[in-house]
Amino acid sequence: MSALIELSGVRKTYRSGAVEFEALRGVDASVGVGEYVAVIGPSGSGKSTLMNLLGCLDVPTEGHYVLAGEDTAALDEAALAVIRNRRIGFVFQQFHLLASMPAWRNVELPLVYAGVPRAERRERAVAALTRVGLADRVDHRPGELSGGQQQRVAVARALVTEPDLLLADEPTGNLDSGSTREVLGLLDELHAAGRTIVLITHEPDVAARAQRNLVIDDGLITVDRPTAAGATR
C-alpha cells in the first residue's frame, strides 16, 4: 500500500506577541491510498491544527508534510491553493454552502477554479449530486434542503474534482442522528469504492466507523490503532 500522506516531525507553533503556543509537537504519521482514518481527540488537543495542515490551509513551522509525493512545506499560498483544488475535497462541520446559489452551482465551484469548461462543469456537478443521491435536488438552494441533504451537497462538492483525499472536519457535528447515519453511510460507501478519507471528530462512535484511529493529545499522536471495523475487513 503506497502512502498518500506522509507526516514527519511536524511541529506547529503559534505566536501572539511574546506568548508562544506549540499546537503540534512533532507528529509522525502516514496514511495509505484507500485508507479510512479518523483523527480523534478532545478540543485543544491540536486536532484542528492537524486538519489545517492536512488540508494545506496552513504549513508546518517545522518538519515535512508530503502529500502524494509533493512536499508542501516550501509552497506559497497560490501553490497551496492549486494543491487544495486538485488533491483535496473538503467537508466542513458548517457545510459552507453559498446560500445564493443552487446546489449544482455550489458543487461546480472547485471546477470553476480548476478552469473546466462550463458545459462539462454542469455535467460533472450533476453526476456528483447523483452519486450522493440528490439527483432530484440539483436546482434547489441550500435553504430548501435539510441539514443532511446540505452536507451531502458538500460531499458532492468535495468529490467533483476526483481528489486524492477527502478531508472531513466534524462532518456530523451539526446533524441530528438520522442525518448523521445518512452522511456516515455515504462515507462508508465512498471508502468501499476506494476513496482515501481522513475524518476529524471528537465522537468515539463516529470514529469507530473508520478503519483506523489516530488519537491526538496535547500536540502528539498517542495512539494509532485499527478499529473493530478495520479489523473485520
Binding site: E77, A78, P110
Partner: peptide, 16 residues
C-alpha cells in the same frame, strides 16, 4: 469573509 475563505479552500488563489 466566510465565502472568501470557502472559495480559497476550494482552490481560489489570492490573485483570483
Amino acid at each position: 469573509v466566510r465565502e472568501i475563505g470557502l472559495r480559497k479552500a476550494l482552490g481560489a488563489t489570492p490573485r483570483v
